[in-house]
Simulated scan of single mutants.
Amino acid sequence: MDNKVTLYGASGHGKVIIDILESMGVGIATVLDDNPNLKALLTYPISKPTEVDRVEDRNVIISIGNNKVRKALSQKMNCHFAQAIHPTATLSKHTRLGEGTVVMAGVIINPDTTIGAHCIINTGAIVEHDCMIGDFVHLSPNVSLAGNVQVMEGAHVGIGASVIQGVKIGKWATVGAGSVIIKDVPDYAVVVGNPGKIIKYNTTNE
């Protein structure tokens, strides 16, 4: 298997992943995207998925920010999913990290935390001890999670949000930017404000 990484998705998120991989000294094999108007991502040419060999023999990162799209694509692919961890991120040796997950610059993850598969732990996020982050979660830049927080599958925690210790964020929930979460958030709920309040529910069609 080629040690280089194939990115699936030519997005701004993909640009950040390229930068991380370059910082790690990992090569980029190709960038795949089915948008015919896209020709290159940074310095890397873009190929259509149909124009290259099957991904089964590749190291792949799904470089798409949408949690539902990452889940759908990952279930269709039979390949090895790589990780990308920026050299400036600080991860406890007692952290467990799932396949396909990316950890960006300045992140801090403390001991006995479990991060699921295909997660985005974005720039400057802080994840304290004993947290459990499910698959396909996105923690936006500068999110702060206190100890023993659970963030369930597919949830999106917006930029600068803070979550106190012991709180559970339900699956496919959305926490708005800058929100302060002091109690559990139900599955699919959209919560905003300080303290966070439910304003609606996301669709349950995953």
Rank of each mutant, 00 (worst) to 15 (best):
N3E: 11
N3R: 08
V5H: 04
T6K: 03
T6W: 04
L7P: 06
S11V: 07
S11E: 10
G12S: 13
H13S: 01
L21Q: 00
L21R: 00
S23F: 13
A29G: 15
T30H: 15
T30P: 06
V31G: 04
D33P: 03
N37D: 13
N37L: 10
L38T: 10
A40H: 14
L41Y: 03
T43I: 12
T43H: 14
K48Y: 15
T50E: 12
E51H: 15
V52F: 02
V52S: 06
D53C: 15
V55K: 12
R58D: 15
I62K: 00
S63V: 07
I64T: 02
N66S: 09
N66C: 08
K68T: 14
K68D: 10
R70Q: 09
A72L: 13
A72F: 04
L73H: 12
S74Q: 07
S74I: 11
M77Q: 01
N78M: 09
C79S: 09
H80Y: 07
A82G: 09
A82H: 03
Q83H: 11
Q83F: 02
Q83A: 02
A84V: 02
A84S: 05
I85M: 05
H86Y: 08
T90W: 15
L91C: 03
S92F: 14
K93G: 15
K93N: 15
K93Y: 15
T95E: 07
T95M: 13
R96E: 11
R96M: 13
L97Y: 03
T101Q: 08
T101A: 05
V102Y: 03
A105R: 05
G106D: 06
G106C: 10
I109H: 02
I109Q: 04
I109P: 02
N110F: 09
N110Q: 14
P111M: 03
D112I: 08
T113R: 06
I115Y: 00
G116L: 10
G116T: 07
A117S: 12
H118Y: 02
C119F: 04
I120L: 13
N122W: 01
G124M: 08
A125F: 10
V127F: 11
E128S: 08
C131W: 00
I133L: 10
G134C: 00
D135G: 03
D135M: 06
F136R: 12
F136Y: 13
V137A: 06
L139S: 09
L139E: 03
V143A: 01
S144P: 07
A146I: 01
A146F: 01
G147T: 02
Q150P: 11
V151A: 02
M152G: 09
A155C: 02
A155N: 05
A155L: 07
V157H: 07
G160Q: 14
A161G: 14
S162V: 13
V163K: 05
V163C: 08
V163F: 07
K168M: 04
I169V: 15
I169C: 03
I169S: 10
I169W: 07
G170F: 11
G170P: 10
K171V: 02
W172C: 00
V175Y: 07
G178D: 04
G178W: 12
G178M: 10
S179V: 02
I181H: 06
I181E: 03
I182H: 04
K183E: 08
V185Y: 14
Y188V: 10
V190N: 05
G193C: 06
K200P: 06
Y201V: 07
Y201H: 09
N202R: 06
N202Y: 00
T203E: 12
T204K: 14
T204P: 12
N205R: 13
E206D: 11
